[in-house]
Amino acid sequence: MKKRWVADASLLAVTFVWGATFVVVQNAIAFLEPLSFNAVRFSLAWLFLFIWLVIFHRSLFRHYTLPLIRAGIWMGLWLFSGYALQTIGLLYTTSSKAGFITGLNVVLVPLFSFLFLKQKPSANAIIGTVMAAAGLYFLTIGDGSWSFNRGDVFVFFCAISFAMHIIVTDKYSARYSSMLLTMTQIFTVAVMCTIFAFLFEDETQIWNAAILQKREVWTALLITSLLATTAAFFIQTNFQKYTTATRVALIFAMEPVFAAITAYIWAGERLTASAIIGCIGILCGMIFAELPTSFLSEKWWRAKRRITH
């Protein structure tokens, strides 16, 4: 029980970092295109982790095996496809719709957990998932109009990719070294982002010194590579083995909440009434899923006794 709470708290801290760095990344990609930014970000993250291992944990390299490498690459491919599909989708749809559709992985993860991992979600988790999905709608869409377009299709497949990343992390995190898995998946994302940046973006800008020296770019790269990539994915890989994939998805649903709060504090963006309702809905969904499994059954029996007596 204690390990589960530590795991959930650690994953919530990761979610806070991702949400808090959203404004920083937005400022950086005004100068460096998204895939190029992620190519540099994940390359630096891999380099930091590699140097750390060489200096402090060199003996871990002896545990590199072909199955571990395959698992890390598989995790990295799902993670990359999530980033890439979201980037493509944003060319054709709005940020608010993309945020909501991406957040639907909170609904997909319990389904995939049941299909691929044979993990049956608890009643608390199911209700919490529905509450979080409703909260995501109010936070990102609100009372705006909805019109379906091809960008929404790309972002929906992005949600599937992020959901599958959680599933495969859940599958492999207990089998192999968290550090080696993290380094392998980060290296995979760096390579894939570099390849696709050369194919679809201005490849001359990836390592353009004039752009990388801009304060908005290098500070964003430093923060995201160290905190939002190296530390974040190591924590996810290391601690997810102590919780369930469904709980991880619910915790990650807090990312847009943290993003909205930090955007309000740092960038002066105002939260609408709909956004506030959405934040509350996501928070309540996460808290509800954290309640003991016996909570619903106890409430149900108490209500039944009141009715029958």
Score class of each variant (00 low, 15 high):
57 H>G: 09
60 L>Y: 02
188 T>W: 00
46 W>N: 07
22 F>K: 00
29 I>M: 03
214 K>I: 02
296 L>R: 13
87 T>G: 01
236 Q>K: 11
244 T>D: 11
22 F>M: 06
212 L>W: 06
171 K>D: 09
24 V>S: 10
231 A>V: 11
135 G>P: 09
295 F>T: 14
89 G>I: 03
35 L>P: 03
290 E>W: 11
210 A>G: 07
6 V>C: 04
89 G>S: 04
297 S>N: 15
99 G>N: 10
107 V>I: 14
4 R>C: 00
179 M>I: 14
116 F>S: 04
270 R>I: 09
259 A>H: 04
60 L>M: 12
271 L>W: 00
74 W>R: 13
290 E>P: 00
54 V>M: 14
235 I>Y: 04
198 F>G: 06
244 T>Q: 03
232 A>E: 05
154 F>W: 08
27 N>G: 11
281 G>S: 11
258 F>R: 07
265 I>C: 05
268 G>I: 07
17 V>W: 02
97 K>Y: 13
265 I>K: 03
19 G>K: 02
120 K>R: 15
51 I>V: 14
28 A>C: 10
205 Q>A: 14
220 A>H: 01
212 L>A: 00
81 S>M: 15
291 L>R: 08
122 S>P: 11
146 W>A: 13
278 G>M: 02
127 I>Y: 03
41 R>Y: 00
117 L>N: 05
154 F>C: 08
164 M>T: 05
136 L>C: 05
256 P>E: 06
272 T>Q: 06
241 K>G: 02
191 V>G: 06
197 A>E: 01
189 V>P: 01
212 L>C: 07
300 W>V: 12
20 A>V: 12
153 V>K: 04
59 S>G: 11
204 T>I: 12
123 A>S: 15
128 G>E: 06
208 N>K: 04
86 Q>K: 05
271 L>E: 12
276 I>E: 09
10 S>E: 02
200 F>C: 03
204 T>Y: 08
31 F>H: 12
210 A>T: 13
284 C>S: 15
34 P>S: 09
307 I>E: 13
49 L>G: 04
39 A>M: 07
213 Q>P: 02
20 A>T: 01
229 T>R: 02
178 S>V: 07
174 A>Q: 13
267 A>N: 13
7 A>K: 01
31 F>L: 08
42 F>G: 01
69 I>C: 09
171 K>Q: 14
255 E>L: 12
106 V>F: 03
93 T>C: 04
105 N>I: 05
43 S>G: 10
